[in-house]
Simulated scan of single mutants.
Amino acid sequence: MRADARKNYSHLLEVARDVVAEHGADASMREIARRANVGLATLLRHFPTREALFEALLRTNLDALTQKAGELETSSPPDEALVSWFREMVAFVHSYSGVVALMASAHEDPDSALYTTCTAVHSAGARLLLRAQAEGTARADMDGVDLFGLMSALGWLVGQPGFAPRADHLFHIITSAVLTNRPRNDVKKAT
């Protein structure tokens, strides 16, 4: 990619990030182009579909979360690693309204532009869960799909004005339900 094209691409992503932060996954491609001071055709040349735009927007964050899971696997006790990663995933999901639905549908669709990235982050969380289960500190009756569902639900819930003030409390309730044999105070220390 030429330097000017790379600069335009980066500018479009920066503007898109702002628009999506304001309007969520339903952000208008036209609004992104307008704010970037380009025509819709220019935006579509870089990102031919909404999904391609979201793949570019989310890839960096999801790749970082996948990498973080790998780091936590080797640097933290299994239960603490799981809780730490879970907190970061909830924060990420909360940062873009509607991203949960995009990630959930992409994870089921191998043709999706988001499939590889979503599958990688989903697998990373499942590995952390399995590690905690092997140690006996996480429920044995749940899997990575359950973990993703809880994370998605909590990310959505804390985005609702009535529940936002209770975000930490709800996080502790959910992580206490995931982890076994840990007093509630220990869960707080691990986050």
Rank of each mutant, 00 (worst) to 15 (best):
A81Y: 02
A81D: 05
L82D: 01
S84H: 03
W85A: 07
F86H: 06
R87K: 11
E88Q: 14
V90Y: 02
V90Q: 00
A91L: 12
F92H: 06
F92P: 01
V93L: 14
V93Q: 05
H94Q: 06
H94E: 02
S95E: 11
Y96L: 00
S97Q: 10
S97N: 03
G98C: 02
L102K: 01
S105N: 07
A106V: 13
A106H: 10
A106T: 02
D109M: 07
S112D: 06
A113C: 00
A113D: 02
T116M: 04
T117R: 08
T117W: 10
T117M: 12
A120Y: 09
S123T: 09
G125T: 12
G125F: 08
A126W: 13
L129H: 06
L130D: 15
R131C: 01
R131G: 01
A132G: 05
Q133M: 15
A134H: 11
A134I: 08
E135D: 12
G136F: 15
T137W: 12
A138I: 05
A138M: 08
A140L: 15
A140T: 15
D143C: 07
V145N: 04
V145C: 03
D146F: 13
L147S: 04
F148M: 12
L150I: 13
S152Y: 01
G155L: 06
W156T: 09
L157V: 12
L157S: 03
G159H: 09
Q160A: 11
Q160R: 13
P161D: 09
F163S: 06
F163I: 09
A164E: 14
A164F: 08
A164L: 11
A164V: 02
H169A: 04
H172R: 00
I174E: 09
